Computed example of a mutant assay.
Amino acid sequence: MAGVLDTVNQRTQLVGQNRLELLLFRLHGRQQFSINVFKVREVIQCPRLTALPHSHPVVRGVAHIRGNTIPVMDLGMAIGSPPVEDPTKCFMIITEYNRTIQGFLVGGVERIVNVNWGEIHPPPKGTGRNNYLTAVTEIDNQLVEIIDVEKVLDEVSPRSVQISSDINIEVQQHLPQHILVVDDSSVARKQICRTLAQVDLETTTANNGREALELLKSWADDGMDIHKQLLLVISDIEMPEMDGYTLTTEIKSDPRLKDLHIILHTSLSGVFNNAMVEKVGADQFIAKFQPDELAGAVMKYADSKKIMEQSR
C-alpha cells in the first residue's frame, strides 16, 4: 500500500479542476468508505499500540511512527460499529486534519480512485443528524460513503470556539454585518458560526459550493447590492458537487460578485497547495480550526475595508 501512495505528490494537478482522489477502504463487511488522498500521509500495518489511560474509548492507544507519537482511533467504533478486537491485524491510515496528525484503524484498504466533485453528492435526505457521512458517491456501481472525519474528531476531542479577549470585536456599523459560510460539515459550520457570533456578525450557511453560488447569483438577480450586504465569504475547499476552488473561480468571474473577499478555510493543512489560492483568486487561506485566527482575519479585513471606504 505504501507504493500506491508514492505518487500522491504528483497528483496536485487535480487541485482546482473540481476533481479529487479518494482512498477507498473497508471497516467491517463489504461496505466501502473513503477519505481524500490529500489528507493521507501514509498507510501501514498497525504497529503495537501503547494504551492511554483515561482516554476516549475510541482512542485505542498511541503509535510511535518515525519519531512521532500519534493517537490511533478505531474509526469503525467511532461511527457506531463494534470495536476492533486486535488492532495489529488492521491497517492504519495516518492522516492530517485541522493541523493535527492521527491514525485511523480500518479493516482493509482497497485503492485510490479519481473522481469529479460533481459526482460527489450530499448524504441522502433521511439519514438524520447523527450520521457520520459528509458525502456519498458511486464507484463501479457500488455506493461509497465519505466519512465526516471532522465530526469524529470533534466528538473525541472537542475544539473550543471561544476567542481571546484581545481580538477586536467591534465591526463598524456602516460595514456589512453578514458573512456567507460554506462548508459540507455540520460541525465545521457550527464552529464557524459560533466564532463569528462572538464578534457580532450574522451568518448564512450553504452546504457546498454549488448551493453557495446559486444563492449568491439569486441575490444578485434580485437586485441586491452584494457588497453592501455581505462582508465576505468563508468557504471550505472539499465539498460535494462543487469544491471551494471552483466556487472561488466562479465568483471572481461574475462581474457582480468578483470583488467579494473570499477566505478559504480548510482542514487540508499540511498538504495544501498555496499556489492554488493565487491561481483561483482567493484572498486568504486559513487552516482549520483556530477561532482566534479566523476571527482575527475577519476583523482585519473589516478594518481594511473601512480604511478603503474612507479613502474614496
Rank of each mutant, 00 (worst) to 15 (best):
Q177N: 15
D292E: 11
Y301M: 02
L133V: 04
I234C: 07
R11I: 00
V280T: 01
R189H: 01
L180P: 00
I146N: 12
G296S: 13
W117G: 07
A212V: 00
M242R: 03
F38P: 05
P53I: 03
N208S: 05
I70L: 13
C46V: 01
V8S: 11
T248S: 10
D221C: 10
F272E: 12
E293F: 05
A295D: 11
T7D: 09
N36K: 06
V8R: 14
I234V: 15
K228T: 05
R256A: 14
M299P: 09
V106R: 02
L52C: 10
V113E: 13
H174F: 12
G270P: 00
V62S: 09
D221T: 11
R26I: 05
N116Q: 12
L231M: 05
K305P: 00
Y301I: 02
P158H: 05
T50M: 12
R194H: 13
D200T: 07
Q229C: 05
T248H: 08
K39S: 10
L215C: 01
G29N: 10
G281P: 06
Q177L: 12
I237A: 09
H227L: 07
I234N: 08
D236Q: 08
Q32L: 14
V277A: 06
F289Y: 13
L143R: 10
M92N: 05
V277N: 02
M224D: 11
I120E: 03
C90H: 13
Q198V: 03
G244W: 01
V233Y: 03
I139A: 06
N130S: 15
G223T: 08
G281M: 09
P47L: 06
E85I: 13
E21S: 15
L52G: 02
R26Q: 14
G128W: 01
Q229P: 04
A287T: 03
I146F: 07
V37T: 14
A287Y: 02
F91G: 11
R48Y: 10
Q10N: 09
V161M: 11
L180A: 07
Q142T: 12
A51Q: 14
P87T: 03
Q198E: 09
E278P: 00
C193W: 00
E119P: 04
K89H: 12
E170W: 00
A51N: 13
L257I: 04
